[in-house]
């Protein structure tokens, strides 16, 4: 854990100072803002993926399967289609951020409310519905994209990939406070999450009110995904990598250990990817592509390795 912190610290100082010419008026404040976005995004990605995997008892899922990101992309596509580039002016990035977050929260609220209304706590049904909805929404988004002019489409593409370059200081402050409040508020429930890993029946016979806990934790996951997607754009694959690396390094199931460690790993990946984008690839590629390349490779390796041991 200490080594991880040292790594993140080294990466972070490298990121802030490398080639900055110690320009404290423009370059460094801009980089600090991006660093803050990475920290917030890292915490969101790690917490939401690890908690989601605990709730579903599955190590290859991320909350993306629930369709939160699909809703975000559809919203962006519709904005560009209906208002064109004027939407950028009309809403500003602030308005877009707030609306996106609210929309994703509303979607998850409706989904849970509708599915879990009769004390039904079948998580798999929720997953299935989330998956189908995200496919449907994704197809609608593609349809909308066909109607958009090429110039406007390139703007839309900017939204559909994770990026740290468009965050605004106010958004950072707002989402930072929100994420901190959520994490502190839910810190108390971490031992309960440990018990959930034993499965529904065993958790209930240990006195855990399973349906209520699942509802609350899913709401937390939705909020974190909404914030990180609104702030950075979709991160899709990355949660799987972060969560599984964390399990391998932490060698414990306790969320008190895995969540902070996962956050650190996620932040390290973000900084490394951004460093490469800025200094090696000179903005010719995006963080999303690098992260997906890394995560995809890791995922394949993970599958090959687990197949080898059987």
């Amino acid at each position: 854990m200490k080594r991880l912190w040292a790594l993140v610290f080294a990466l972070a100082s490298g990121f802030v100072l490398f080639g900055s010419g110690l320009d404290f008026d423009y370059v460094i404040p801009k980089r600090l803002a991006r660093l803050a976005a990475m920290c917030i995004g890292g915490v969101c990605v790690a917490w939401s993926s690890i908690i989601f995997q605990t709730l579903t008892g599955n190590r290859i899922l991320t909350p993306a399967i629930m369709g939160y990101e699909a809703v975000y992309l559809l919203f962006q596509a519709l904005l560009v289609l209906l208002l064109g580039t004027a939407s950028l002016m009309l809403l500003g990035s602030q308005g877009n951020f707030v609306l996106s977050v609210l929309l994703m929260l509303g979607y998850s609220w409706a989904l849970q409310r509708w599915l879990l209304r009769e004390g039904n706590s079948n998580v798999y049904f929720l997953l299935l519905l989330g998956l189908v909805l995200s496919l449907v929404i994704g197809t609608v988004t593609q349809f909308v994209q066909l109607k958009i002019s090429p110039g406007e489409f390139s703007i839309l593409q900017g939204f559909s990939q994770a990026s740290f370059n468009r965050v605004q200081p106010q958004q950072l402050l707002f989402s930072g406070l929100l994420v901190a409040a959520l994490c502190l508020g839910f810190a108390r429930t971490l031992p309960t999450l440990d018990v959930l890993a034993l499965g529904r029946d065993q958790a209930m016979s240990l006195g855990v009110d399973y349906p209520r806990v699942v509802r609350l934790q899913l709401a937390l996951v939705a909020a974190l995904v909404a914030i990180s997607t609104g702030l950075l754009g979709p991160t899709a694959f990355m949660g799987v990598l972060v969560a599984n690396t964390t399990y391998a390094l932490a060698r414990t199931f306790r969320h008190r250990v895995t969540l902070p460690m996962g956050s650190t790993i996620a932040i390290a990946i973000f900084i490394a990817a951004q460093l490469l984008v800025e200094h090696v690839f000179n903005y010719k590629t995006t963080v999303s592509i690098l992260v997906n390349l890394l995560c995809g490779t890791y995922f394949l390796a993970l599958m090959l390795r687990t197949r080898g041991t059987r």
Partner: peptide, 8 residues
């Protein structure tokens, strides 16, 4: 005894 993927 449930099957779970924890190392406990």
């Amino acid at each position: 005894a449930p099957d779970f993927n924890l190392r406990l």
